[in-house]
Design a protein around this nucleic acid. Structure first.
Lengths: 146, 146
DNA sequence: CTCGATAGTTGAGGAGGTCAAGTAAACAAT
DNA sequence: ATTGTTTACTTGACCTCCTCAACTATCGAG
């Protein structure tokens, strides 16, 4: 009942905490994106565009249907944040590229995730390293598909 | 460039890792929900219903407009997973309550988050406690609103 | 060259989301 | 007590996200 020391937290407690952190980070991201007139999905797509990416690759990354990407990229393109370029080696594929404006916007969104940045700043170097190591061990298992 | 030891990870690396874990967990949750014919939003609502909750409280928890909750609860109610009950002390409010079937479904969804459970199982008691303590320190800062 | 796979789009339709407007009930307020 | 303000919820219009099925264009193998 009380806020006792978590000697050995139950898996359920850990799960709940992980979910709460994930939710909070997502809200932070969505809020920052919204300040720049973007939905969280649009921002997520923009965040993937380090370089040119075919529509299909984008759909794979987002784990969604290809037809969905068409609409999202349509709207990003209408705002001038992204361009569709023909692929020189395969005339079927269209590579999506972030424009200068697009790169600028997503950079600012990342910078403006204040809650997340603030929370991470409360951790010292040692704690950061420990957390990083633990999460890195968790990651491969989490990304395995059923 | 290579996968070097993360002596002191940069904040950006930590941020990226945290985002990846959050995304993976969310996908796991959505997949489990989908096995039971639920969207992730519906499952999320069901997960909040430990006890009766007014529509308004639900909207606050989900950080969304109240009119949105109307539709979500409509669909849950149509499947018999949830009931709207009049509040005895305030005739304006309708308390949302999970039915037996609703409780059952959300319990199974939680159990079926295999990727997440599997990943957490790779951690020993000590590591779990350490991770829990670190995340618990992060949480309050993350949930602060800008 | 033809056949089968792949990349992308379109259209239909559902779910999630917002905003504006409306109804009903609670709460003041002297 | 009646008048006015606030609160809880719903409805309707409208957008984005998302899936599925169907279509076009291109690629690649035999």
């Amino acid at each position: 009942m009380s806020a006792t020391t978590p000697e050995t937290p139950t898996k359920l407690q850990l799960l709940e905490l992980l979910a709460a952190i994930g939710t909070a980070q997502w809200r932070d991201f969505a809020a920052a994106a919204s300040h720049h007139g973007l939905t969280s999905t649009q921002a997520k797509v923009l965040a993937q565009l380090g370089g040119p990416l075919p529509m299909r690759a984008l759909a794979t990354l987002l784990v969604c249907d290809a037809s969905n990407v068409t609409g999202i990229v349509d709207r990003l393109e209408a705002r001038g944040l992204v361009r569709r370029e023909p692929d020189p080696t395969d005339r079927r594929v269209k590579n999506v590229v972030a424009t200068d404006q697009g790169r600028d916007v997503i950079r600012r969104v990342r910078e403006e995730m204040q809650a997340t940045h603030g929370a991470l700043d409360t951790l010292g170097a040692d704690d950061s390293a420990t957390l990083y190591a633990l999460l890195a061990r968790l990651r491969p298992g989490m990304e395995k598909d059923a």
